[in-house]
Design a protein around this nucleic acid. Sequence first.
DNA 1: TCAAAGTTTGGTAGGTATCTAAATTTTTCT
DNA 2: AGAAAAATTTAGATACCTACCAAACTTTGA
Lengths: 146, 146
Amino acid sequence: MQGITGQELSSKKAEYLKYIHMQGDVVKTTEIAACFSVAPSTVTKALTEIAKAGYIEHTPYHGVSLTPHGAEYARFLIRRHRLVALILSRHGLEPEEACREARKIEQCFSKDLTDRMCTSLGHPMMSVCGEIEHDHRCCGSHGDRS
Amino acid sequence: MQGITGQELSSKKAEYLKYIHMQGDVVKTTEIAACFSVAPSTVTKALTEIAKAGYIEHTPYHGVSLTPHGAEYARFLIRRHRLVALILSRHGLEPEEACREARKIEQCFSKDLTDRMCTSLGHPMMSVCGEIEHDHRCCGSHGDRS
DNA sequence: TCAAAGTTTGGTAGGTATCTAAATTTTTCT
DNA sequence: AGAAAAATTTAGATACCTACCAAACTTTGA
């Protein structure tokens, strides 16, 4: 919970987790494979590891769903993505480009760095690719750091 | 020359190249190994590959030196590093932190993205960790794109 | 129930980085 | 010069990451 560094998952796995979060409920392996254009077995392997790390519940042949921890982590990943995209858009990139480039670089940004940039930007509500959710203790936005 | 993408070298190799550039002349394997706290053999292997890619001249048992191409590439790497650090410093990080964090994320920034951010920042002369050199055609700063 | 669809297992492959130990070359010192 | 010491390279391993395929397996739905 409080121990997020932002590098727990490889970038591909993080992408899978974000995708699962955005799909909501139970997600099938094949669906993910199709979306990312990789073989289903590649996804299964990644999913198994993500499950082992505690972010998802994997019921073979039925799909995966987020654990509470996974949901929290996914929210962080999405917030980070949107913050990075926002910063890029403020440096001359068109919205779509900003979102695309953000996907390439976001995995390098630690939780701490993300939170500090968030603060520095004044906890913006909107990015170029969606709303930015600022939950409770996300980055001191609501002063409950005690 | 014109084909820099920014991802030609892995981040470790890029660090070595920057180091070699900053040391000037001929650099010894052991010196690099000590600086990065890795075994000399690790450096030798990396150096061999960097040399194969044409960025350095490696004379076994005597050290390495930059080729003209390597020098140009190193200048890009350093400019990119300083631009990224500058941006981070403008988002609430102290100079030293900005430099340290920049080292972690800079390898993700393409040449194109770097140039655009450079333009957007108005081709700044100074960053938090040194001057930023804007050579001839670096990013359209001197209008000689033809 | 049985075939098609979907999923997992196990093996292969390429990339990065690292280390230890042994062999080689260079340097230093007597 | 010659030998010991230091520096460097090579070889052989390990360890991760990503990705893929073929074959075996499970589920689903007609």
